[in-house]
Design a protein around this nucleic acid. Structure first.
Lengths: 223, 223
DNA sequence: TGAAGTAATATTGTATACAATATACAAATA
DNA sequence: TATTTGTATATTGTATACAATATTACTTCA
């Protein structure tokens, strides 16, 4: 069988395919609105249609694809309305994550976040967008995992996945960027104080502001 | 093909199958921990394995099933820990729903909820469990739809689906039932006042209490 | 030239077929 | 009798085949 080809090997082919196709979409290989021809993907991934279709159904459930009867799957595009729907929900979830994380996080985890925070601050001062967003994402992931609630993590990631590139491609204004950094300073402080309610409030505000940024980016990109 | 057999006909066979299998599980035809043999289901639903498997993958994504390599799907059972994970997330979502609904709900919708509320109160005084839970569920659904956020609704329903029977099979204590009714009185009042924060707070509290009930029921059922 | 209709092709949705793994049963041994 | 091991059956995971719908290209006619 899968003779320890990969160390964990808990993934069936279908799951690998799901992740692979998801990546193709998030990386922009298939832009919003475009069709996903099964033949092409089968050849590209060197698999048959059956596991590919199972993967696509899963991605449709996650909201990344949409099936039209007899017309196959299309990548769903984000509208401003979609963003207005998504962010409040993400805000509620990340806010809960913050509340839980504040009481459950270890000193070690706080230290890790502190490292990421200073990395991010450095990228900020240097104006390096991509690395900044990477550190940013890592911090949010760490908070999520410190909440010790996999259900919450899954629900959040599903929604965050729909934002895709938009969230990070968004070219923040200088002011917005400074503001975001200030919010992150507050986060770190609230975490160090294990102040759940305060962290929850900050995160909700943080996401609300990020929502504005993404919407502006969307409006600018496709007016 | 589907020549207007059903008036809307927006569902592909696969989606119908998904709903059908989901119902089978929630109705208890396949209890938690039991396997879902493809042959049986194929015969029962009179379809081939391909659409069935697509449906099962979707249900696995929703968290109702779990696939083991080469061993097929099993219905996942709820543990007390799962409930402790699920309810805070549902609380955050329903609380957000309440906040949004309070500001967006129409007088007509409030009137509908009021009708359901009095129906529910009647069932309560008569001690009719099943109809009570039905009215209860309808009220929560109406609040959710008044929030005008399909993303939120979907996310919530996914989680609520995992609670399944447990939530309604739970035999509340007399005291708890009285308390739940009181909470619903508060909800209606907050809705009529369009008081979002208050409704949000009530719903969070309501779900927190319901969590306790479900956990006690789970502990009692399988100790 | 352009529009409309029709045939050819391609793509999708479902069913079946095949290979690999797991389960069940029976026989053999201690 | 209990345990183990070999084989037969059943079930799963993937690939292919077939039928139905959509898309494209071409022909025909105004």
């Amino acid at each position: 069988m899968s003779t320890a080809a990969d160390p964990i090997a808990r993934h069936s082919l279908h799951e690998v395919v799901t992740d692979r196709v998801r990546d193709l979409i998030t990386e922009g290989a298939f832009p919003p609105g475009s069709r996903l021809p099964e033949r092409i993907l089968c050849e590209q991934l060197a698999i048959s249609r059956t596991p590919l279709r199972e993967a696509m159904k899963v991605l449709a459930t996650e909201g990344l694809l949409e099936f039209a009867p007899n017309k196959g799957a299309r990548v769903v595009g984000l509208t401003v309305d979609d963003v207005d729907e998504l962010f409040p929900v993400m805000g509620a979830l990340e806010s809960l994550a913050g509340e839980l994380a504040a009481s459950r996080i270890t000193d070690e985890e706080i230290a890790e976040i502190r490292v990421l925070h200073y990395q991010m601050a450095l990228h900020h001062t240097r104006g390096e967008h991509a690395p900044y967003f990477k550190s940013n994402q890592d911090i949010h992931e760490k908070i999520l995992s410190a909440a010790r609630n996999p259900t919450l993590s899954t629900a959040y990631r599903n929604l965050a996945g729909r934002i895709r590139g938009a969230r990070y491609a968004a070219n923040m204004s200088r002011d917005r960027w400074v503001q975001a950094m200030a919010e992150h300073e507050e986060m770190l402080s609230a975490l160090e104080d294990h102040d759940g309610p305060r962290l929850a409030e900050i995160l909700k505000r943080h996401l609300h502001n990020k929502c504005q940024t993404v919407k502006e980016a969307l409006a600018g990109a496709a007016p």
